[in-house]
């Protein structure tokens, strides 16, 4: 089995430094566990972050050199067509670029591959050329989909933690650089400006809410009733 992990030009959320996205590192972990050959693929101009992938379990990495603002889809499509990979793994959305998460879908469309999102586990199917993908749903539920390969799969953050980083392995990994034809990025009609953090809606119940809900020394039965009612009225669980 031949798998390729797509690597984006991710930025560290705190420092803004080029790093490997955690989700893509998890994708490497899933791919490694499947066995077969696994390589990384990045289209762009920055190698600092993606080369970390070699320390997380990849043995080789292909880099398609593209100018920073170029649209990578056509270059990736051409390269992947030639590769004939059985499985293409990707994160959910880039972290550092246009971040729209459309790239895997655009790629799947261009390659004519089925795409499955939010994988947390991958196992080879019973029949050859099939793959069983466990997709994460809310509340711990899973959707187990058997798909015929080749396919494109994106990874969910609940997938197993990435393999720890090994500096020595990164140093020894192979980087292959390719020249790619840059397609013009579609010009955005939107305005770009510096990021401004906006507060999220409050989730934690406020102190006053606890004030009305402080019960000192209630009868145990009363306490039990209060707890179950609280759970039910907040829609956490329903009993009976």
């Amino acid at each position: 089995m031949k798998s390729v992990v797509l690597l984006s030009d991710a930025r560290h959320p705190v420092s803004g430094r080029a790093v490997l996205s955690r989700l893509e590192a998890q994708a490497i972990g899933l791919g490694t566990a499947l066995g077969g050959t696994l390589t990384g693929l990045h289209a762009g101009d920055c190698e600092d972050g993606v080369q970390e992938s070699l320390g997380h379990g990849l043995s080789a990495l292909d880099i398609l050199s593209l100018p920073p603002e170029a649209d990578p889809v056509s270059a990736l499509t051409d390269f992947l067509k030639a590769q004939k990979a059985d499985l293409i793994l990707a994160g959910r959305r880039g972290e550092g670029g246009f971040d729209s998460g459309l790239l895997p879908y655009a790629l799947a469309e261009a390659l004519g591959l089925p795409i499955l999102a939010d994988a947390v586990a991958l196992t080879p199917g019973e029949a050859t050329d099939t793959l069983v993908v466990d997709q994460a749903l809310a509340k711990g539920a899973r959707r187990r989909v058997t798909v015929r390969l080749p396919a494109l799969v994106t990874v969910h953050p609940l997938a197993p933690a990435p393999l720890p980083f090994a500096f020595g392995a990164m140093r020894r990994g192979t980087i292959r650089r390719h020249v790619a034809e840059a397609a013009d990025a579609s010009t955005d009609p939107v305005e770009e400006r510096p990021y401004r953090a906006r507060p999220k809606l409050m989730r934690t119940s406020s102190a006053t809410a606890s004030a009305e809900n402080l019960h000192v020394g209630p009868e145990p039965e009363e306490a039990a009733r209060l707890i179950l009612d609280y759970l039910e009225s907040n829609g956490i669980r329903r009993y009976g």
């Binding site: 089925p114 509340k139 711990g140 899973r142 187990r144 989909v145 058997t146 015929r148």
Partner: peptide
């Protein structure tokens, strides 16, 4: 390309802490 689909419900007792509600 999709050969089968099966839903496996989450069991709170055995769910990972990071995932449960």
């Amino acid at each position: 390309a999709i050969l089968s689909v099966e839903i496996i419900p989450g069991d709170p007792a055995r769910l990972a802490l990071s995932e449960t509600d």
